[in-house]
Design a protein around this nucleic acid. Structure first.
Lengths: 257, 257
DNA sequence: CGTGATATTGATACGCATCAAAGGTAGTGG
DNA sequence: CCACTACCTTTGATGCGTATCAATATCACG
């Protein structure tokens, strides 16, 4: 056992176990871990930094050293193309884990930047790996986290490859709703932490297109949008649009394989 | 060859260790594992099935039980949208590992089908997890494999979200070349295992568009295409097209994997 | 209250999908 | 071996969806 770990155990009686008390406990990394093991996990987590809007958590091409759980706030991740433009690869909300892209090359292939004031739990990867060898459920849980990232990415690929602009926006809104719901927040009424430009970039659309779709959906009483505040009025309809089966200006099947 | 490696192979002659003798050894799962551990890994791998063109390795929504290393041949993975169309999410060549999408939900979220006659090494996931607790480098290597999948997906997202049709096709060709190169095959001249329709689906393009781009690039002497046989003549140019800027300088070999 | 960033709205242009049809290729059975 | 079918690929003509350009309008913030 390392000195640091020994220290951590020494401190555990004086220091509160933040993981155990964190409201995100059921959806973050510590899920399904016994209380004793939770102490150990807690001990390797660093919680130094509060980021402000625009601050970077890590940069593309920087050395990969840790993964990061979001305690509060939100981030966007993006890569830079050879031509110098940025492509937003994901939005990360409280309770979600970011930075797993760098494991392979030991260098981050994306940058992560705070969209608002954001608190981070930093988990050094080498320490985490040691912990996975000891704490029973942790390795599997971490595998699942990575697998979820893969699933999410594949959903986005599908969206970018096949769906219309309206379907893309609808999908994003539904996804955000789902994720807020996991945190016991309202699924229908929430605040978009990112700009229209970020949304467009993420969805492969021009800003103007995103804006137009928001206003059109508002006119059709599917949404209510006031700046960054969104309220989903007709969830059913949004699902239908997201799935591609729209009745207004409907186009049926495209590219039948 | 090192003495250790020589010994290992000698030792193996009594109990055949296919992993040790596999030509894909340096790029597949067993990379960076000691000969003794390799033997243990080998023991949990099942090599029963040779797939024929069109045979499925696993189906979407089937239970997740194993991951699969490709010994020879190639696969495509795809998901099915709510509307019933398929979206190709990836092509997998010899030496690559497929099926990691299912870990999270314990159910596959994509199907995998052979593009040609294909040999598979099946690795039961529960056995693999046990092995990662014992074999030092294996857990890390597996993390890296998953991370590589995430990186590849993000490259594709970038491609689908930002790039022109020509850039998409160029990127795919360069990626395939890179991957063949890893296997010590020609980077410039290879056979496309998938149909034009698969390519179009994967890249978010119509079949006709893919076809047109192939012919145009052939006219410009960038490629030579004869059916499924492709030869990259002007790699530099292809890089430039892939990067999106028709005349800025080409970077060195793109990762792509 | 001014100043730059962000968001909306309209007009036009262009890339790619779609439709249509011919040309190739592989696989099958007479 | 050839003929035949079914599928895959290529090529051309046309239209739609979304980007782009341009001009306000609105918000954030010192």
């Amino acid at each position: 056992m390392t000195d640091a770990a020994a220290n951590a155990i020494h401190f555990r009686h004086q220091n509160i176990n933040q993981c155990a008390e964190c409201s995100l406990n059921p959806i973050c990394l510590p899920v399904a871990i016994s209380p004793e093991d939770l102490y150990q996990l807690d001990s390797i987590i660093q919680r130094s930094r509060p980021l402000h809007r625009g601050d970077h958590l890590f940069w593309e091409e920087s050395a990969f050293e840790a993964i990061y759980a979001i305690k509060a706030g939100s981030l966007k991740a993006y890569t830079t193309t050879d031509a110098g433009e940025e492509q937003v690869t994901g939005f990360y909300l409280a309770g979600e884990v970011v930075g797993m892209d760098g494991i392979h090359t030991e260098t981050h292939v994306s940058s992560a930047v705070a969209l608002e004031t954001t608190s981070i739990c930093e988990i050094p990867f080498d320490r985490l790996q040691e912990a996975t060898q000891v704490i029973p459920g942790l390795q599997n849980h971490f595998f699942k986290l990575m697998s979820r990232e893969i699933q999410a990415d594949q959903q986005l690929m599908l969206l970018l490859g096949k769906k219309s602009a309206d379907a893309r926006v609808a999908s994003l809104l539904l996804s955000l709703g789902d994720r807020y719901k996991r945190r016991r927040l309202s699924e229908q009424r929430f605040r978009l932490p990112m700009s229209r430009s970020d949304i467009g970039n993420y969805l492969g659309l021009a800003v103007e297109t995103v804006s137009r779709i928001f206003t059109r959906m508002q006119q059709q009483n599917i949404l209510s949008v006031e700046g960054k505040e969104v309220c989903i009025i007709e969830r059913e309809q949004l699902c239908r649009i997201s799935a591609g089966s729209e009745d207004t200006s409907c186009k049926t099947s495209r590219t039948g394989s």
